[in-house]
C-alpha cells in the first residue's frame, strides 16, 4: 500500500511542478508584456479577410505604413506584419507563415534590418517571437534568432526565462495571465500621436562605415524571401522608409547594394531616404521621437505617397467599390480615427 501511495504522490508532485511551471510561466511572461510593442503580431491571426499587400519589417514598417489610409485613399487592402527590431530571418519566417494563409499581390519589405547579421537584443527578439502563434515557422524563427545564452526549452516553458521577474508582479498579472492579448494595432500599424521634433541643434554625424558589405546572413535570408515570393507568385517590393536619425542611418553604400540586389533579382527597390520634400514630411511635426520614427501624421503622409506608387506602378486594385470590403474597412477606419482623435 505504501508503495502505491509513494508512486501516486510522486506522480502528483511531478504534475504539481508541471502545473506550477506553466502557471507561473504564463503569469511572469505576461508581466513583461506591459510593453505595447509586445503585441504587434498577434492580431493578424484573428483576421479572416485577405490582403493585396503585406508589409514586412521592423519599426519603420509598423510605424510607417497605415493600412487605414491606404484603403481610404486607394482602396488597397493591406496588413503590416512588423515588430520591434524584426530581423530578416524573423521577417522571412513571418512571411512564410503569412503566405501559408493567403496569397497577396505584393509583399513590401523594408530593408533596414539587413544591417543586422546577428540578433541585436535577446529581449526584443523574444518579444516578437513570443507574439507569434506556434507553428513550424515560429520554431524555425526561434532557432534562427536564438542568442548563444538562450535555450530552446525556455520558449516552451517561459518560466525558465522570466522567473526573475517575480518581484515585479502585481495582482493584475495573476488576473489576466491567461487572457488573450488584445490587438492594439490597426491592421498591424501601431499609432503614435505624440509630436517630438527633430533637434536641429544636434549635429552628430554617422559613424564611419567599417564593413561596407551588408551581413552575409542577412542577404541569405533576403534571398530566401525572394525565392519564396517567386515560388508563391507574389511580387516582392523592397523599400527603405524615410528616417531622420543617426541611429537608423542608411549608408549610401548599403543603398547601392540594394540597387544591385534588386536589379540582379528582377525586383523593384524604392529608396525613400532623403525624399522628405517629395513625401511632404516635416520633421518638426511628423515624428514622435526626434526623427527616429514617424508619428501618425508623418505615417499618413508616407503611406499616401507610397500608396500612389503601389496603385500606379504595381497595379494593386482599388476595392472601394466592393460593398462588403468597404463595410469591413469602414469599421476599421472608424476605429483608427477614434484613436487618432483621442477618443479611445
Amino acid at each position: 500500500m505504501k508503495k502505491v501511495i509513494r508512486i501516486i504522490s510522486f506522480v502528483c508532485a511531478l504534475l504539481i511542478v508541471l502545473g506550477a511551471v506553466l502557471y507561473f510561466g504564463a503569469v511572469l511572461q505576461d508581466a513583461r508584456l506591459d510593453n505595447r510593442e509586445g503585441h504587434l503580431l498577434c492580431g493578424y491571426y484573428d483576421t479572416t479577410d485577405m490582403h493585396d499587400v503585406i508589409f514586412i519589417g521592423d519599426c519603420e514598417v509598423y510605424e510607417g505604413f497605415v493600412p487605414a489610409t491606404l484603403f481610404e485613399e486607394y482602396g488597397i487592402t493591406s496588413y503590416v506584419r512588423g515588430s520591434s527590431q524584426q530581423t530578416v530571418w524573423q521577417s522571412y519566417h513571418i512571411l512564410e507563415e503569412t503566405l501559408e494563409r493567403e496569397t497577396p499581390k505584393a509583399v513590401v519589405f523594408n530593408v533596414l534590418a539587413l544591417k543586422y547579421g546577428e540578433t541585436p537584443l535577446e529581449e526584443i527578439s523574444r518579444m516578437s517571437l513570443e507574439d507569434m502563434e506556434w507553428s513550424g515557422s515560429k520554431l524555425e524563427a526561434i532557432k534562427a534568432s536564438m542568442t548563444e545564452e538562450e535555450s530552446l526549452l525556455s520558449y516552451f516553458l517561459p518560466l525558465l526565462r522570466y522567473h526573475s521577474r517575480w518581484s515585479d508582479l502585481d495582482g493584475d498579472d495573476f488576473k489576466y495571465a491567461f487572457d488573450k492579448h488584445q490587438d492594439i494595432t490597426h491592421q498591424g500599424y501601431l499609432m503614435q500621436t505624440k509630436i517630438d521634433p527633430v533637434d536641429i541643434s544636434d549635429n552628430r554625424q554617422p559613424d564611419d562605415l567599417l564593413n561596407v558589405a551588408l551581413p552575409k546572413r542577412a542577404i541569405e535570408y533576403l534571398d530566401k524571401m525572394t525565392a519564396l515570393c517567386k515560388e508563391k507568385g507574389v511580387e516582392l517590393i523592397l523599400v527603405k522608409a524615410p528616417t531622420n536619425s543617426i541611429r537608423y542611418y542608411w549608408y549610401p553604400e548599403w543603398d547601392a547594394q540594394m540597387v544591385d540586389y534588386a536589379e540582379k533579382n528582377g525586383l523593384v527597390y524604392y529608396s525613400l531616404v532623403g525624399k522628405d520634400d517629395e513625401i511632404g514630411l516635416d520633421w518638426s511635426q511628423d515624428t514622435y521621437d526626434k526623427g527616429l520614427h514617424l508619428n501618425v501624421y508623418g505615417a499618413e503622409k508616407f503611406t499616401s505617397y507610397f500608396g500612389k506608387i503601389l496603385a500606379e506602378n504595381h497595379a494593386i486594385p482599388d476595392h472601394r467599390s466592393d460593398a462588403e470590403l468597404s463595410a469591413i474597412w469602414g469599421a476599421r477606419i472608424d476605429a483608427y480615427y477614434k484613436e487618432r482623435n483621442g477618443e479611445k
Binding site: F10, A13, S154, L159, L160, S164
Partner: peptide, 16 residues
Amino acid sequence: LALLCIAILVFGSYGL
C-alpha cells in the same frame, strides 16, 4: 520535492 522544485524554478538565479 514539489515545493523544492517550484522554489528553485521561481526564485533560483539561473538563465539569462
